Computed example of a mutant assay.
Amino acid sequence: MANQLAKGYKLKIIVYTWAVHDKVDWGIWDERINIRIVPYSRYFQKLIAKIFYYLWVKIDRPDNIILNFLYHGETALPAPSNIYYVLHSPASLIPHRYEYIREKANQFNHLSFIAVSDFVKQSAMPYLENKNIEVIFHGIDLNRFSHPAKYVNKGKIKLLTIAALEEWKGIQHVISILSDNELSNEFEYTIIGEGSYKNDLIEMINQNNLSSHVRFIDFEEKVESILPNYDIYCHLSDGEAFGLSLIESMACGLPIIVYDIPPFDTLFPINIAIKLKNKSKELLKESLLELISVNERKRIGESGRDFVRDKFMVENMAARYIQKMSQVEL
């Protein structure tokens, strides 16, 4: 979004971030964007961040501040600042952090909140009573996803999930259903991610003799290069703040499978996604068998791509932030 704000609205953007061991390739930054990096410290990161934030704000004198956190030293920011705190996670996942936000919120004179979905907003409201919370969806640059999926049946149909390997992400539900020979003969499943639940998933794969049907790979490429190599994106988590990987998958024209629970129940219309009753193995099997059809995958995939183009473009996201900050008249 920083690039879009800089290019589209000629704004000067300053990003405060931390030094990390594993650097992320964010691509090319607009010349109006300046990145300031807090030195890394294993034990004193929060204290060091407070010092640098305090000094940098005095030097940069920003008109508006967009926060992604409030518990890593950001409380050092001046109380009179115009601050917009983006809530990326539902309170059900991090209740202790929402308790902290509630405790610290009143120390700022002009603090408002932006939730990435209605689900996140609703979960935050009990903690942030009488606080303004506006929903602004994430947006993507559709130009990054210029090579959509190919709708062909050549060998087995390829399922994909990109997620942290945690139990609530629901990867085990896909593995379990593939123990059905009718499905394992038609599908193969690739999982990209790391996490504490990986050994449990490997054990499940081995117990069901699925090692030739399910594989883990490292995330070494940009997502826009990975997605077009697959046919269906599965995301059977118990809930997400938003689910950006789903939007990226739809941008590539992949049909997606989710449970019909928040936030997906309101985020995606029924015609652009396969939405299943929560934990229903029968409906998951039925939907996968239906998606063997090239025409069905194409119908849902193309509808999803059109939906992303209408609802989740980075241009829309940036415009909403500009409107929220009242820096330009729209």
Rank of each mutant, 00 (worst) to 15 (best):
G193K: 11
Q207M: 12
I162K: 07
L183A: 12
N206G: 09
V214L: 03
L183I: 08
A164M: 15
L159A: 12
I191P: 09
H173G: 03
I157L: 09
I191C: 09
G170P: 14
G195L: 00
I202E: 07
L160R: 03
I162P: 01
L183C: 01
H173W: 01
I205L: 07
V214S: 04
K158R: 11
K158A: 03
A163K: 06
G193F: 00
E186Y: 10
L165G: 00
E166K: 08
N209V: 07
L159W: 10
K169L: 03
D180W: 06
D200P: 03
Y189K: 08
L165Q: 02
L201Y: 03
S211T: 13
I202K: 15
K169D: 01
S212M: 15
G195T: 04
I177Q: 08
I171M: 04
S176R: 11
S212Q: 15
S176E: 10
W168Q: 14
K169E: 10
N181D: 14
S211R: 13
Y197F: 15
V174K: 03
W168M: 12
S176M: 12
L210Q: 01
V174I: 11
D200E: 14
Q172I: 03
A163V: 11
G195C: 01
L201R: 10
A163Y: 02
V174L: 11
S196Q: 15
E188A: 02
L159Y: 06
I177G: 04
N185T: 12
L165Y: 04
S196A: 10
E186Q: 05
E186K: 06
A163W: 00
I162T: 13
N209P: 08
N209M: 13
E194W: 06
Y197D: 05
M204T: 15
E203R: 14
F187G: 07
E167T: 14
A163D: 02
G170R: 08
K198V: 00
S212L: 08
N208I: 05
N181P: 10
I175E: 10
S184Y: 04
L210K: 00
N185K: 13
N209D: 12
E203G: 13
I205R: 04
N199R: 14
E167A: 14
F187A: 06
I205T: 06
G193S: 07
I191T: 01
Q207F: 02
I205M: 03
I177H: 02
A164L: 11
V214T: 03
I191N: 07
M204H: 14
I177F: 00
S196H: 13
A164D: 13
E188F: 05
G195V: 00
T190S: 15
I205V: 06
V214C: 02
K169T: 02
L183V: 13
A163I: 05
H213V: 07
L165D: 03
L183P: 05
N208W: 00
H173Y: 07
I192N: 00
A163M: 09
K169G: 04
I171L: 14
M204D: 11
S196L: 13
V174S: 14
S179D: 05
